[in-house]
Write a protein that binds this DNA or RNA. Structure first.
Length: 420
DNA sequence: TCTGGGGTCCTAGGACCC
DNA sequence: TCTGGGGTCCTAGGACCC
């Protein structure tokens, strides 16, 4: 049996951990530049605020109902996520963190008749220990566990845990579950299924394998099997990331080359740090910048360069120099760049890096310097020491009017114990 | 005026091989 | 008129997830 633990309204719940006075009030967390709503409390959902809606479109509602808005604070959410995950990890031998607020874990070491009570205790422990409310779904496949978790979240009577164990439970759960809400069924698949007269998960599960495969290919067949209770999507533990991205939309478009280069340098540094954390190196680097796709009054411009590195690397200085050289080849003076980003690709373990016989750089020396810089960062916080290219002007380019204080900076010592 | 960020997997089709 | 067959690898783009 699988369990899926899902944090309720995660980003909002994180903000509430440090602001208990906001319990019972409508609260939302916003995307970058305070653009869109990305997390909503139940009270905000009840007001009809939709996921992903731009803030400016609901401004009057926010003011009228006293909705509390937060800019996103990802270092806070990351820290609280780590605490929730580390507690769950202690209760299982097989564990997969699926996203910042969700994880799958195997519970076969618990007797079947005690699994529900076991998970209920876990829900209470995490609520008490971390302050985050979670819901758990239990079933024989990951897709059914996701279905169960939605029921657990929806009906308070379940006390946070719902299981799909018997055939009756499965049929009942799927018969009133909308097909578009099934894990793996997106917009396109839903449209195809609706056209075929299918609106519930049960109707889909009761069609033939040939039908599922014919309409939705391999991913659709897997979902179909999982809805019938077959376990075909296995838990994948700690996979190494195959690509690492850092990108941002700017509050106002940037035309200045130097300012854009400063942003790209910071994106590179952020990606490279993640690369080193997982002990890997990138063989390719992709840089892009473009105008706002929402502007119909200006000509669209999309700049992009793919660089294949002579030797795979995770060195910040080196990645920045390749990224900026690529950017300079494609930069168009005068263009209104609204968004830019850096992607690292073809990622390999650092032990698999193949040296170049004619390599002019002293990689040993560069690595030693990098380790010292990382060490200073770890001890003294982010941006304690950075490269010149990362701070030419340090002009503000993002908008975060509603950011909560950096609670976890003060909590650094407590949190570091858990992290290492 | 204002519209997020970071991932994975699958498939079709082209290039290339014998 | 008529022009093989089978395989692998790579890439771009689509669909999906949170």
């Amino acid at each position: 049996m699988y369990a899926l633990a899902d944090c309720n309204n995660f980003f909002v719940s994180c903000e509430r951990v440090f602001r208990p006075d906001l319990e019972g009030r409508p609260v939302v967390v916003l995307s970058g530049n305070d653009g869109c709503v990305v997390s909503r409390s139940n009270e905000a959902k009840a007001l009809g605020i939709k996921m992903g809606v731009p803030l400016y479109q609901i401004k009057s509602l926010v003011e009228a109902k006293g909705v509390v808005c937060f800019s996103s604070n990802f270092s806070l959410y990351g820290d609280l996520s780590d605490r929730v995950m580390s507690i769950i990890r202690r209760h299982t031998s097989r564990f997969e963190q699926y996203s910042i607020d969700e994880c799958f874990f195997n519970i076969d070491h618990i007797p079947a008749d005690r699994q529900k009570a076991y998970c209920e205790a876990l829900v209470r422990d995490i609520r008490r220990g971390v302050g985050i409310p979670i819901s758990i779904g239990i079933a024989s496949s990951k897709t059914l566990a996701k279905v169960a978790s939605k029921y657990a979240k929806k009906y308070p009577g379940y006390h946070g845990v719902c299981e799909i164990r018997t055939e009756e439970q499965r049929l009942k759960a799927l018969s009133s579950f909308e097909i578009g809400d099934v894990w793996g069924i997106g917009r396109k698949a839903k449209a195809k299924l609706t056209a075929a007269g299918i609106t519930t998960a049960l109707q889909f599960a009761e069609r033939s394998a040939t039908f599922a495969r014919g309409l939705l290919r391999k991913p659709g067949l897997l979902t179909w099997q999982e809805l019938r209770g077959q376990d075909v999507i296995d838990i994948t533990e700690l996979p190494m990331k195959q690509s690492i991205t850092t990108s941002r939309t700017f509050a106002t478009a940037i035309t200045d080359q130097s300012l854009l280069e400063e942003q790209l340098a910071n994106f590179c540094a952020h990606c490279a740090r993640q690369l080193r954390t997982q002990h890997s190196a990138a063989q390719q680097l992709y840089v892009y910048a473009h105008t706002s796709s929402f502007r119909t009054d200006i000509a669209q411009h999309y700049l992009s360069e793919l660089v294949t590195l002579p030797v795979a690397t995770s060195n910040t200085q080196e990645l920045i120099s390749y990224a900026l050289a690529a950017f300079r080849r494609a930069y168009r003076p005068g263009a209104l760049y609204k968004k830019a980003g850096v992607v690292l690709l073809k990622i390999i373990p650092e032990t698999a890096v193949v040296p170049d016989l004619f390599d002019p750089t002293d990689r040993n020396k560069a690595d030693r310097l990098q380790r010292v810089l990382d060490h200073i960062d770890d001890r003294h916080g982010k941006r304690a020491i950075i490269l010149g290219s990362q701070m030419r002007s340090d002009a503000p380019v993002y908008k975060t009017e509603h950011k909560s204080p950096l609670y976890t900076t003060d909590m650094r010592d407590i949190l570091t114990v858990k992290a290492k």
